[in-house]
Computed example of a mutant assay.
Amino acid sequence: MGVVTPQRKGVVPDALADRLRAAVAAQSEAVVELHAAIAAALLAGGSVREVERISGVPRNTVERWGRRGGWPSAEQKAQWAEEKRRRDELAEKLDAARRQLDEQGEQ
């Protein structure tokens, strides 16, 4: 757009008012898309840290927007619970092995 003749105070020329309205609408659409993209990345298995790194959006915000978008899915929750169960089982086996070694050392 070329040079615009200054208007009296308080009046925005119609062309610039239209430009402002279009920019506000585009910004709103971009925010909606950003929320959706973050949720989709998390639902696809991306980590919160990786999504934070790529998007530049703070971790807490990534988590909040992800939850609003349906993350974690029921499948992800089940997978995480299974991984936790396996880790707990392994930790218990390691503790039992340590106790056994300690008992053998005392003999």
Rank of each mutant, 00 (worst) to 15 (best):
R49G: 13
E92A: 14
Q7C: 10
V51P: 10
A39G: 01
D18K: 14
R99T: 12
R99V: 12
L20Q: 05
D102R: 12
K93I: 04
D88N: 12
V11S: 03
Q107F: 03
E89R: 10
G66K: 00
A40L: 11
A26Q: 13
A40G: 05
A96V: 04
R99Q: 14
A81W: 01
G10I: 06
W80R: 14
D88K: 08
E83T: 01
E29L: 11
V31T: 06
A91R: 03
E33P: 01
Q100E: 15
A36V: 08
L43G: 04
P72R: 00
A40K: 13
I54F: 05
P6E: 10
V48I: 15
A74V: 10
A22S: 09
Q79H: 09
Q76G: 11
S73W: 05
R87I: 04
L94H: 14
E106N: 06
V32H: 08
G56N: 08
Q7V: 07
S28Y: 08
Q104P: 00
E92R: 14
G2V: 06
G46N: 09
E52G: 02
L94R: 15
E89K: 05
G56T: 08
Q107L: 06
A37R: 07
Q76S: 11
A91D: 14
I38L: 10
I54H: 08
A91G: 07
A40V: 04
A37K: 03
V31Y: 08
D14E: 15
